[in-house]
Design a protein around this nucleic acid. Structure first.
Lengths: 183, 183
DNA sequence: GCAAAACCTTACATCGTGTCAATTGAAAAT
DNA sequence: ATTTTCAATTGACACGATGTAAGGTTTTGC
């Protein structure tokens, strides 16, 4: 399990053949099949495992404890950007997977979309405070917020173009505020 | 060539085996290998072909003709969002490809990154007018603008959550303006 | 001590990619 | 009119990866 993850997260974009997993775990290929009936199941289990050991509740506590909508938005934005460095390598690996690994990608999508509930909660808090821009419904604002918090955008700026993470965070705080909150 | 594209863009996410291409083109598998030495070459050629028939120059003309930075930004944003519906299906297909198709994905990335030059040009025009926010360098502003124009964000709102395209465009115009331009 | 679980070895079926060689058919060259 | 040439065909094969199967060995738990 951990072996699968370590291979998945390895800097070298390995194709992750079953034989690789087996070797890395010090067993034979067939033993791997004793634990997971097929490749998809193995990958989804690994993704699940990854998500579990990520301590989501702890990292989201500040957001939930925020006293008002504005600070909740800020806290959630920060929490999300804090996740990205840990999550992104896995996403990269998943994107390298071929057809026949659709299940695994679905498992990933599920995890990501769970993040959207946090967006919705922050937006709802804003709305309750009367601080959400008038022309945005809660649903629209949630979509928009989720869109702005794009992991690809983060990767583009921070990983590809060398922004300091703090700078990217500051920009996102500014932009999300402008995009959603009444002046 | 067109056959490859039509299969690639087909609603059904087909695995796109060589044999499928051959059948669809009415030839044998080996004949396909006579034209493209391998799968990657075939895919990259298809992507190239796709980009060529996209009439980029025409669609970008309004942006280039814009009299000032602000209107250039607006025109370019609109041009990008106009591209997305045509481009997205191909991106989806590409993302389904497995390892060994890295070349094809690179070809795609190249095409996408060409879009960034347009972002840079718009940002530069803004800067020349003195309308770019003071705390943003041209490079940073370009990264940020490119990030905001994320195709995944568009897909999330328009395709997954049913935003009318016009609404999404309006939001993007608003947000990019707030993110980059002096009030 | 014994039974279950975990693991190993070997072998095989299947499927998709990529290669090769011999052959057909038809257009083009002269 | 014949030869050259080129595209396509047929059929076979090697290779690598997934997944299945059967039977044997070692570890572990009770």
């Amino acid at each position: 399990m951990d072996t699968v993850l370590s291979l998945l997260l390895a800097p070298e974009g390995s194709p992750l053949r079953m034989i690789d997993v087996a070797k890395a775990a010090g067993v034979t290929r067939q033993t791997v099949y004793d634990h997971f009936s097929n490749r998809s199941e193995m990958l989804t289990a690994a993704i699940q495992h990854f998500g579990d050991q990520l301590d989501i509740d702890t990292r989201l506590a500040p957001s939930r404890a925020a006293p008002d909508g504005r600070s909740r938005l800020t806290a959630y934005t920060q929490a999300m950007l804090d996740f990205f460095p840990a999550i992104y390598p896995l996403k990269q690996s998943l994107m390298r997977m071929g057809p026949g690994d659709e299940e695994a990608k679905s498992a990933w999508e599920d995890r990501i979309h769970a993040m959207k509930e946090g967006c919705a909660a922050a937006v709802h808090a804003l709305k309750s405070d009367g601080d959400l821009l008038d022309h945005l419904t809660e649903a629209r604002a949630t979509d928009l917020y989720f869109t702005l918090l794009s992991m690809d955008g983060w990767a583009h700026c921070v990983l590809e173009n060398g922004w300091p993470e703090a700078d990217y965070l500051a920009e996102m705080q500014r932009v999300t505020r402008l995009a959603l909150v009444k002046p």
